[in-house]
Design a binder for these strands. Structure first.
Length: 617
RNA sequence: GCCGAUGUAGCUCAGUUGGUCAGAGCGGCUGUUUUGUAAACAGCGGGUCGUGGGUUCGAAUCCCUCCGUCGGCUCCA
């Protein structure tokens, strides 16, 4: 994102004003919210009352904006005492601006911390006393704003209105909903064009499109929204990921368990989840005894039950329990996004590590190391850690403040010790403790959590699960909730987007496809023999002996992103050698050469086993 | 859930202002062909135009309801 001191930032900010000014010319009664610079552009929140803007209006707005740019209006800066600023907002009939100014006068920036201080014409965040407010004026459009802006409206670069979306005033869903006009802007027309091309390309990497093209998964209206069905190819990928994690974790002392998907609410009442999440859980109708059972949205309480059964003494700790369970969570319909945000089954790669206070740091560090290792091996790039802390101004965080700070400090030390790059954010913690979220951007640039590790300082005590310490006293354990791959479906989605569907060989639904040149008996027999040999080596291998041209069958295999394609005809029958066609991204050095069939198959089998991302062929 | 957009064959999409508008390409099936590293040729099937109402002599086309999808907002154990 551009920085406030950059000229590009000033251009984008100025375009926000110009866009608002254009809207005001077309709809003089328009009420304005805020209009900050964002990645690649800007937005402005507007409220036109009964009228709404739609994309059909963009041309008119852009035309008007271009007129303002052509007029080359000077951006004039001036300050007003807060009382005069309030008078201005009243006179201009700008209720949103008026609300902001009133808040600023009454309580300073602390009440307006949900907004960027730059939008408020303030010098910096944290000014608690506001006496003067900064304004900018261009032509007949005036707005409170800290700036900076370009010198005049003619000095902005290339821009384009992209979309309009609903956005709640000050981000609260109880507030009125405004319309948010999004624009992208760059210094040069060519950069803007390049950006638009990039956005088009991103669409082809969207995991939902890849899922369709590669026959991985789909969502059936008959089954329901947010409930994807994995087809054989998709399930293969998920299963490989699950196997991989299971072996990895078992080798590090994690023990796998299996717990019911249906559970009475009693358990969630005991764990405290009920008061936070019951409305987001799917329940059955009452049975004959009147009991309602819920589809589990998390495994924690179940694992805590197993803990109770297995642990008596500190000598039993740490206990590391894992489960790959299908969870169900009610998600708002507007939040659903393919495999990234679904209602179920969310196959969580879920572990709970029960530790004493002395063990927590070492265990937490181990988990961070496991993250780095797994992400390196699976080829996940461009992720970062977020230390998610509570915001004590809100009431949802249970337990006492000192304990929260103690837990937050431990995690921070672990992150620093692991030399992990991380950011800290308030009001992102779980209700039972601070956590580290592993953040990633999806193909459209939207930030998502891919995985999480949390330090639970609340639930064991609340549930009364205990152990006896070395002095014979009862203690509550700490619980590290960790999920390296998050949900396997979601992890798969990110991998698909990062690789554009060209998964490493070990994750490919089909390792090798054999294509026959013709349908003569000898050719088919040769292909079948090769198929059998491959299967014995554990390879996912198939034969395409359909009555199509070789070119067409190759094309079909390429489009399915099959890593290795082998053509079988008279030559291969005679020499028992193959010249594999290797998917481009796997190749290290250019030329493809000839290999005895057995050597080729064994090499691929080894690549699958070692999970390499490049080929040695 | 809210705001905006959108929904036509398995997939990608055409269908101007309501009147042979139910179409194309790919995929599928059948036949011919027996093919050498990204699309052989021919023919044939295939859709109550998301759903349910309404307006109209007449609706894929206009209006409303609901469902799904897309982009945001909110939420995310």
């Amino acid at each position: 994102m551009s920085k406030p001191e950059d000229n590009l930032h000033a251009m984008r900010h100025s375009l926000a004003h110009i866009t608002a000014a254009a809207v005001k010319r077309l709809w003089p009664h328009a009420k304005f919210g805020v209009g900050p610079v964002i990645e690649n552009g800007y937005y402005y929140d507007i409220d036109l009352g009964k009228v709404t803007v739609s994309e059909a209006d963009f041309e008119r707005i852009e035309t008007e904006a271009r007129k303002i740019i052509a007029e080359d209006q000077v951006f004039e800066h001036f300050n007003l005492p807060i009382t005069e600023a309030i008078a201005w907002a009243k006179k201009e009939k700008q209720p949103y601006k008026l609300e902001l100014l009133n808040d600023l006068q009454r309580a300073g920036t602390t009440v307006a911390k949900d907004l960027d201080s730059a939008e408020l014409g303030l010098k910096a965040k944290g000014d608690s006393k506001v006496e003067e407010v900064s304004f900018y004026r261009n032509g007949d459009f005036t707005d409170l704003c800290r700036g900076p802006h370009v010198a005049s409206t003619g000095k902005v670069g290339a821009f384009k209105l992209m979309r309009v979306a609903g956005a709640y005033w000050r981000g609260k869903d109880t507030n009125p909903q405004m319309q948010r006009l999004y624009g992208v802007a760059f210094a040069k027309e060519a950069e803007l064009k390049q950006h638009l091309v990039m956005l088009e390309e991103a669409k082809s990497r969207d995991h939902r499109k890849i899922g369709e093209d590669l026959k991985l998964f789909f969502i059936s209206e008959n089954v329901g929204a947010g409930l994807p069905l994995l087809m054989p190819r998709g399930e293969t990928i998920k299963h490989e990921l699950m196997n991989y994690m299971r072996v990895k974790e078992q080798n590090r002392g994690y023990q796998y368990v299996s717990t019911p998907v249906l559970t009475q609410s009693k358990l969630y009442e005991r764990s405290g989840h009920a008061s936070y999440y019951l409305e987001n859980m799917y329940g059955t109708k009452p049975d004959e005894e009147g009991n309602i059972f819920y589809l589990k949205p998390m495994n924690c309480p179940h694992h805590h039950m197993i803990y109770e059964k297995l642990v008596d003494s500190y000598r039993d700790l740490p206990l590391r329990l894992s489960e790959h369970a299908g969870l169900y969570r009610y998600e708002l319909s507007g939040a659903l996004t393919g495999l990234i945000r679904m209602r179920g089954p969310i196959t969580q790669n879920d572990s709970h590590i029960y530790v004493t206070a002395d063990q927590v740091e070492a265990e937490f560090t181990n988990v961070l190391q496991l993250f780095e290792e797994v992400y390196k091996e699976t080829g996940v790039k461009d992720y970062w850690f977020r230390l998610s802390l509570p915001d004590f101004a809100k009431e949802k965080y249970a337990g006492d403040k000192e304990r929260w700070e103690w837990a937050g400090d431990i995690i921070r030390r672990c992150l620093q010790g692991a030399q992990a790059k991380f950011v800290e954010e308030l009001d992102e913690a779980a209700f039972y403790g601070p956590k580290v979220d592993i953040q990633i951007k999806n193909v459209h640039g939207k930030e998502d959590s891919i995985a999480t590790v949390q330090l639970d300082i609340v639930v064991p005590e609340r549930m009364g699960i205990k152990y006896v310490d070395s002095e014979g006293k009862d203690q509550y354990p700490l619980v590290i909730h960790k999920s390296i791959m998050g949900a396997f479906e979601r992890f798969m989605a990110f991998l698909l987007e990062q690789t554009a569907g060209k998964l490493p060989v070990w994750l490919s639904p089909e390792h090798i496809r054999i294509i026959t040149v013709n349908q003569e008996d000898a050719t088919v027999a040769c292909a079948d023999d090769m198929l059998k040999q491959g299967q014995e080596l554990g390879l996912r291998i198939s034969v395409d002996n359909t009555n199509e041209s070789v070119g067409k069958k190759i094309r079909a295999a390429e489009m399915m992103k099959v890593p290795y394609v082998v053509v079988v005809g008279q030559k291969e029958i005679e020499t028992k050698k193959v010249t594999p066609r290797i998917r481009k991204d796997l190749v290290v050095n250019g030329d493809s050469s000839e290999y005895p069939v057995v050597n080729f198959l064994k090499t691929v089998a080894n690549e699958v086993k070692s999970r390499t991302t490049k080929t040695s062929l």
